[in-house]
Amino acid sequence: MDARKLIGWNLRELRVERGLSQERLALEAAIDRSYVGRIERGEENVTISVLEALAAALDVKVGRFFAEVDPARPRPAAMRAGRKPSNT
């Protein structure tokens, strides 16, 4: 797996584990939501500054984005689309 795909895979896995939408993660990292999607799909060459912002928003070390992935493991599942139900 190339570095861009590896970073994207790990980013999506971390984001979904924390129950964050791409939009929420983008807001917390002060980057564009569509950019998060392109990173997750392995379409972007991400700068260290962006990785640092994403790592801070996810409360992980930057190196976590480079963790090796078992190629046989299925891609992290997508979160359910739409808004969360209101508590009222």
Rank of each mutant, 00 (worst) to 15 (best):
M1F: 01
M1V: 08
D2H: 07
D2V: 01
D2C: 00
A3P: 01
A3W: 08
R4F: 05
K5E: 13
K5I: 08
L6D: 03
L6P: 04
W9G: 02
R15G: 08
V16N: 10
E17F: 04
E17C: 09
E17Y: 07
E17G: 04
R18H: 11
R18Y: 07
S21D: 13
S21P: 14
Q22C: 12
A26N: 09
A26R: 13
E28M: 14
E28D: 15
I31Y: 05
I31N: 05
I31G: 05
D32I: 07
D32W: 08
R33N: 13
S34T: 15
S34G: 08
Y35K: 12
G37L: 03
I39E: 05
E40F: 06
E40A: 04
R41Y: 01
G42H: 11
G42N: 13
E43L: 11
E43Y: 06
E44Y: 11
E44P: 02
N45R: 09
N45Q: 05
I48G: 11
S49H: 12
S49P: 04
V50L: 04
L51Y: 00
L51M: 12
A53I: 11
A53F: 04
A53R: 15
A53S: 14
L54W: 06
A57R: 05
V60I: 14
K61R: 03
V62L: 03
G63Y: 01
R64C: 02
R64P: 03
F66G: 05
F66C: 02
A67G: 01
E68P: 05
V69S: 02
D70V: 01
A72E: 14
R73L: 13
R73W: 02
P74S: 00
R75E: 07
R75P: 06
R75W: 11
P76N: 06
A77K: 09
A77M: 03
A78C: 07
A78R: 15
M79G: 15
M79C: 15
R80W: 03
R80E: 11
R83M: 09
R83E: 14
K84L: 15
S86L: 15
N87H: 13
N87C: 10
N87F: 10
T88N: 15
